[in-house]
């Protein structure tokens, strides 16, 4: 079953140039997919099209078997949650508790059930201690965790992270990446992460690379980065392990394509002991 199917999706902000053009891809249910590409490649636009925050010019978006149209917008949004880039601008409530409650109120969850749900999801992102804190007293990473809890509490099937770590400090980035990894491990949630973080990309199940509004490459991280020439051609960063392998190859040491550093070192040791 596909969680997301996008077919020939096209969108334009100004009616002249298409920000997204003829984009087709599908995302496996329960998978962890990253979408990469330069600023302006259309990544975030695609995220907003999938959640119906922007209206497509043409093409088709199917979420969890349901084709997105004007009438089922709110049904779709029950199934897809999205965490945005700016931690401040998506914190709606005046405390952590109120912010998680915001989505529940919209879904008309009975008031007497809310506290249990809030506690459950605050615990999931380890924010229980901060339930009564105001956003100004939280770090960026903590605010993003609250945003995640607020969305998880609405029990979506698909969770999109739209550069959710890009405005955070290293500690905040780690916190969020840890939450994402745990969600992927412990739940059936489909995770889509739009990111510049190459470390995150190499640990995902699939990668979709966008360039100038088109899908330039896609596949597993191994498959995608194996084609180093193409990756270079679309001006994407290569993982350190691959750059190291290229340098080693120039010195006459030819190793298999490993995208993680641990894998590379092991591969090197194997190669060395064989000689």
């Amino acid at each position: 079953m596909k969680a997301v199917e996008v077919e020939k999706l096209t969108f334009s902000y100004d009616q002249e140039t298409n920000a997204v053009e003829d984009v087709t891809f599908s995302i496996e249910e329960g998978s962890y997919t990253t979408i990469i590409g330069h600023n302006g490649s259309g990544k975030s636009t695609v995220a907003k099209l999938i959640t119906g925050l922007l209206e497509k010019k043409s093409g088709k978006v199917v979420i969890d078997g349901l084709e997105l149209n004007e009438d089922n917008l709110y049904e779709i949004r029950k199934r897809v949650g999205i965490v945005f880039q700016n931690p401040d601008n998506q914190f709606i409530g005046s405390t952590v508790r109120d912010d998680i409650a915001f989505g529940l109120e919209n879904r008309c969850i009975p008031q007497e059930n809310m506290d249990d749900i809030i506690n459950e999801f605050a615990e999931k992102v380890r924010m229980t201690k901060y339930l009564d804190k105001e956003p100004t007293r939280l770090s960026g990473g903590q605010k993003q965790r609250v945003a995640i809890a607020g969305i998880l509490a609405m029990k979506p099937k698909i969770l999109i992270f739209d550069e959710a770590t890009s405005m955070l400090d290293p500690q905040g980035k780690d916190e969020i990446k840890k939450v994402i990894r745990n969600l992927h491990k412990d739940s059936t949630l489909t995770i889509i992460s739009i990111t510049h973080d190459i470390e995150e990309v190499i640990h995902a199940d699939y990668v979709i690379a966008l360039r100038k509004g088109h899908v330039a490459m896609s596949g597993t991280p191994q498959e995608l980065f194996a084609d180093t020439d193409q990756v270079r051609k679309i001006h994407l960063e290569l993982p350190f392990a691959l750059r190291m392998q290229e340098a080693l190859a120039r010195e006459g040491i030819h190793l298999g394509k490993e995208i993680t550093m641990e894998g590379l070192v092991e591969e090197l040791c194997r190669y060395d002991s064989k000689r």
Binding site: T51, L53, Y74, F84, N89, D98, F102, L104, E105, C108
Partner: peptide, 18 residues
């Protein structure tokens, strides 16, 4: 965007936490 994505529809009945 954040409010809409979390299912807020102005004018539609919602429950209240507090």
């Amino acid at each position: 965007n954040a409010m809409e994505a979390r299912g807020y529809q102005p004018g539609v009945r919602r429950t209240r936490y507090k």
